Amino acid sequence: MPQVVVTIDGKTFRMACAEGEEDHLASLAAEVDGRVNELRKSFGEIGDQRLVVMAAIMATDELSEQRRRIAGLEAEIAAAFRDRDEALRRVAADERRFVAHMNEVATAIETVAGKIDGRA
């Protein structure tokens, strides 16, 4: 299992990850490090653990918001599929009515044509 050494808030950590995930893990650690540094600039020295906890809570809040947005988008997609299915059912019903009407018109034309041929 590959290991990656990451630095967060000036401290290094050796982390294990799945094969091929090394760059992703390093990128995530860099993002956490950036958040901790931003918080340190905003709040000063309030303790390493507290900064890391605040960064984790901020990241979790963003994740929660994205999950909420995804759920909303999934609901919109499901509604769009239901609307599409209903529209397709209406189109199919309209097509059946149109074909039936055209058959009636064709029958009427044939009847008229037969009467005209009979008189000629």
Rank of each mutant, 00 (worst) to 15 (best):
residue 79 A to Q: 15
residue 97 R to H: 11
residue 76 E to A: 00
residue 50 R to L: 06
residue 62 E to Y: 11
residue 118 G to F: 00
residue 56 A to G: 10
residue 106 A to M: 09
residue 95 E to F: 14
residue 19 E to T: 09
residue 65 E to Q: 12
residue 38 E to P: 01
residue 60 T to Q: 09
residue 27 S to I: 05
residue 76 E to F: 02
residue 90 R to P: 04
residue 83 D to Q: 12
residue 8 I to K: 05
residue 43 F to E: 06
residue 51 L to Y: 01
residue 103 N to V: 11
residue 111 T to H: 05
residue 37 N to R: 15
residue 29 A to Y: 04
residue 88 L to S: 10
residue 77 I to C: 01
residue 21 E to V: 08
residue 41 K to I: 12
residue 118 G to E: 00
residue 117 D to W: 01
residue 23 D to F: 05
residue 41 K to L: 06
residue 9 D to H: 07
residue 3 Q to E: 05
residue 5 V to Y: 00
residue 52 V to Y: 03
residue 88 L to V: 14
residue 70 I to S: 04
residue 91 V to E: 00
residue 38 E to F: 05
residue 52 V to S: 07
residue 50 R to A: 10
residue 106 A to T: 15
residue 25 L to A: 10
residue 82 R to Y: 06
residue 47 G to R: 06
residue 119 R to Q: 09
residue 7 T to Y: 00
residue 45 E to P: 02
residue 116 I to P: 07
residue 28 L to S: 09
residue 50 R to N: 08
residue 86 E to I: 11
residue 25 L to D: 02
residue 12 T to M: 00
residue 90 R to M: 04
residue 68 R to E: 09
residue 46 I to F: 02
residue 17 C to P: 04
residue 41 K to T: 14
residue 82 R to E: 13
residue 74 E to R: 01
residue 39 L to E: 04
residue 34 G to T: 12
residue 98 F to P: 00
residue 62 E to T: 13
residue 120 A to M: 11
residue 54 M to K: 13
residue 78 A to W: 08
residue 6 V to W: 00
residue 41 K to N: 08
residue 53 V to R: 08
residue 30 A to E: 00
residue 63 L to G: 11
residue 9 D to G: 09
residue 37 N to A: 15
residue 120 A to T: 15
residue 25 L to T: 13
residue 69 R to M: 10
residue 101 H to K: 09
residue 19 E to D: 12
residue 13 F to E: 03
residue 107 T to V: 03
residue 36 V to D: 04
residue 107 T to D: 14
residue 14 R to I: 07
residue 18 A to Q: 13
residue 2 P to E: 11
residue 81 F to H: 15
residue 78 A to N: 13
residue 44 G to P: 06
residue 64 S to R: 15
residue 38 E to I: 10
residue 98 F to E: 02
residue 2 P to F: 08
residue 31 E to I: 13
residue 115 K to F: 01
residue 58 M to V: 14
residue 5 V to D: 02
residue 81 F to Y: 15
residue 17 C to H: 06
residue 90 R to L: 07
residue 14 R to D: 01
residue 80 A to I: 14
residue 10 G to Q: 04
residue 2 P to C: 07
residue 7 T to D: 04
residue 44 G to L: 06
residue 36 V to W: 00
residue 54 M to N: 08
residue 19 E to G: 02
residue 60 T to E: 00
residue 73 L to N: 10
residue 13 F to T: 07
residue 96 R to G: 04
residue 53 V to S: 04
residue 60 T to Y: 10
residue 99 V to C: 00
residue 104 E to V: 12
residue 115 K to Y: 01
residue 72 G to C: 09
residue 38 E to N: 12
residue 114 G to E: 03
residue 16 A to M: 11
residue 103 N to Y: 10
residue 68 R to G: 04
residue 108 A to F: 06
residue 108 A to C: 07
residue 48 D to Y: 04
residue 109 I to F: 03
residue 101 H to N: 10
residue 55 A to V: 05
residue 83 D to P: 05
residue 101 H to D: 13
residue 77 I to L: 06
residue 107 T to C: 01
residue 113 A to Y: 03
residue 12 T to E: 08
residue 33 D to H: 08
residue 24 H to E: 14
residue 65 E to A: 12
residue 39 L to G: 12
residue 33 D to R: 10
residue 52 V to C: 05
residue 64 S to V: 11
residue 26 A to D: 02
residue 3 Q to A: 10
residue 71 A to E: 14
residue 29 A to D: 01
residue 19 E to Y: 07
residue 47 G to F: 01
residue 8 I to P: 03
residue 79 A to Y: 14
